[in-house]
Amino acid sequence: MKAWAIRTAIAFVFNAITLWAAAILPGVRLGNGFPWVVLLFTAASLVLRGTASAVFRRLDERRRLDERRLDGGQGPDGGLPRRLKAARKVLVGVVGLALSFGVLWLTTAFAGGFTISGTSGWVLATVVVWLASIIFDAVDDGLESKAHQLLGGPGPGGRRRT
């Protein structure tokens, strides 16, 4: 429970910074109720990205099983062609952009203090949120470990760090 609370708090602060930065873009306006907007944005982001992550994990498991069956268990990668690796990266990027757009759309639909107008506003805000999510994914585990250390609890893996 504590790890979930720490992860959510980190996401809340990071998303507050992201939305504040996005508010300088043309067509993006952040008004009253900033904490509510960030809370809704964080909830939508955690739910949508968690769901997408679960789907990708399931697809990866299925792919690994298929590869083992085809290559006779010769390795985890089974000589997967570079085209498929590149296609997967492109798919992950496109899904990330779509999730960023979805999170922004949900936030503007249900939070009164956040609006995006015009095509350029939507495109720029989506790209900024997507780039911020990439940065967040890169630093999230380190921030979570540091928070656990500062709070004196076990790390994300459940073991106390020394």
Rank of each mutant, 00 (worst) to 15 (best):
A5E: 03
A5I: 12
R7Y: 11
T8K: 03
I10F: 02
A11V: 03
A11E: 04
A11D: 03
F12Q: 05
F14W: 13
A16Y: 13
A16G: 15
T18F: 04
T18L: 11
T18Y: 06
L19M: 09
W20Y: 11
W20V: 07
W20S: 11
A21F: 09
G27Y: 04
V28H: 00
V28R: 00
R29Q: 12
L30K: 03
G31T: 02
G33I: 01
F34A: 05
P35R: 09
W36H: 08
V37Q: 06
V37A: 06
L39I: 05
T42A: 05
T42M: 09
A43Q: 06
A44Q: 10
S45Q: 13
L46N: 06
L46I: 13
V47W: 10
V47F: 12
L48G: 08
R49C: 02
G50M: 09
T51C: 12
A52V: 10
V55R: 04
V55I: 15
F56T: 08
R58Y: 05
R58Q: 06
D60C: 01
E61G: 13
L65N: 07
L70W: 00
D71S: 02
G72C: 00
G73C: 04
Q74N: 13
L80R: 12
P81H: 11
P81K: 01
R83L: 12
K85M: 14
A87K: 09
A87P: 01
V90T: 14
V90Q: 04
V90K: 07
V92C: 01
V94F: 12
V94G: 08
L97G: 04
L97T: 04
S100H: 07
F101R: 04
G102E: 09
G102A: 08
V103L: 05
L104R: 09
L106S: 14
T108S: 15
T108D: 04
A109S: 15
A109E: 15
F110K: 06
A111L: 11
G113E: 12
F114K: 07
I116S: 04
I116L: 01
T119D: 09
G121S: 06
G121F: 01
W122C: 03
V123T: 00
L124W: 03
V129M: 13
V129T: 14
W130S: 13
L131H: 08
I135G: 13
F136Y: 15
D137E: 14
D137C: 06
V139Q: 11
V139C: 11
D140Y: 15
D141S: 13
D141W: 13
G142M: 12
G142F: 14
L143I: 12
K146M: 13
H148T: 00
G152K: 02
G153D: 07
G153V: 02
G155D: 13
P156F: 02
P156Q: 08
P156H: 06
G157R: 10
T162N: 12
